[in-house]
Design a protein around this nucleic acid. Sequence first.
DNA 1: CTCGGTATCCCGAAAAATGGGGAGGGGATC
DNA 2: GATCCCCTCCCCATTTTTCGGGATACCGAG
Lengths: 245, 245
Amino acid sequence: MSDADDAFIHQAFDLIDGFDDMSDPLDVQQRVLALVKDCGFTYFTITRLPQPSERLGPNVLLSIWPRGWLSHYDRVGHYRYDPVVRHCYRTIEPFAWTEVYYEPEILLRARRVMDEATEHGMAAGFCVPIHDAMGFQAVVSLAGERIEMPPRVRRGVHMLGLYAWGAAERTTAKRRKPTGRLLSVRERDVLSWAALGRTSEEVADILGISSQTVNTHLKNARLKIGTRNTTHTVVEALRRREITL
Amino acid sequence: MSDADDAFIHQAFDLIDGFDDMSDPLDVQQRVLALVKDCGFTYFTITRLPQPSERLGPNVLLSIWPRGWLSHYDRVGHYRYDPVVRHCYRTIEPFAWTEVYYEPEILLRARRVMDEATEHGMAAGFCVPIHDAMGFQAVVSLAGERIEMPPRVRRGVHMLGLYAWGAAERTTAKRRKPTGRLLSVRERDVLSWAALGRTSEEVADILGISSQTVNTHLKNARLKIGTRNTTHTVVEALRRREITL
DNA sequence: CTCGGTATCCCGAAAAATGGGGAGGGGATC
DNA sequence: GATCCCCTCCCCATTTTTCGGGATACCGAG
């Protein structure tokens, strides 16, 4: 721990205090990047994590990324194989790109994503995953050619990431479309009980409807989110935060 | 912002650095409490948030609570109505107990919980909710007679809570599951595929075993964790972190 | 007013899961 | 050597879900 590290923490907390007064996401973006550039970061994004089948583009809140990277990324469908993204689904701890696990099944494709990122000037990176209670998984992502972060600075960046996400959410709230859920109330009711192991008959009794109706709701939920059976639907609904335990 | 606040941040980060070397949860507990006592906190717990039907007791990782409070809390079933707990399900931001929303349907019961907490010496409190990828949750909870936290200190406590959670998870890992996991490797394999919507036949093909065997694994997994069907088993296995998506 | 979405209900055949049971081999542990 | 657990496989009756179809009614937006 050095004085420089402490100075960084100090500045980070000052910046966090300042987030409350910012109304323009560009302010957030530039202030954060200015602070972390000494660690070697030149790129900075805050984005939600969509379903594997979706594109990343529409979910980006803030982005300073290499020119053309995002559109290329979406066009070739990197999102599904990006080991950094997949790591975000599994952990709540901040991590450097060097620490991610490469799933054997998609190893080659995952390496390609990272190789191309390197070619675009993002040889190294650091992510702060965000897991929200009601519906979002998001990630604050920093990248550059070479990064250097003492442990204490890393913690400061962690904190900065958490609050930057809050600030980004707030400042881009108007611009974003209202997030509607896919499933209907009844479908979520039925899935919630199914998640607890109730059969259609039992759910029908609980909700005071016929078991046929319960089956119809399960069927419609399956069709809506494109799942293969009730188990799959429940898991996916949990993952999308359509239902909660 | 005062020098005292900065000193607090400094100490908090020192403590966080020290978590890595701690192997006894009691160390974590006492060091954290020693640091935050100047804010007025005298009680400190880290606990998972179980399903509403469960008890809190078995999910507590660390606990310095008033004598008899936890057993009383479980005995009278406060968990289901505790407005602080319910607030944790909804938010990702740290919050003081004064900021929680009282749901009208359970208002009286919720007030009773808080009144009894006050009688036990916990008139005020502060929580750091923890959310992981599946939406399963934990909370770091601090309480006392009267608390005082300037904004900057509050951020420090936030950070402290996040890392204390990590430390508590790590240091209590052995105590919680000395033998490892409940399910066998094969049972987890089968459940992992079931979570993705595969039928027994499909899983059998994937794993190169007969579908009878797959059904047996599903059956044994059901019996082991005491669930009602495959959907329930998968959800519970995810919650217990026996499997991951 | 029509159209789309939601919620409710129904049918029937086919597929899948469940709940009993049993059984052999292998590996670790005591 | 006995015991326990894991993995594997099997049978069979029953229950449950799935997957095609339907249908009626309400409600809000265009």
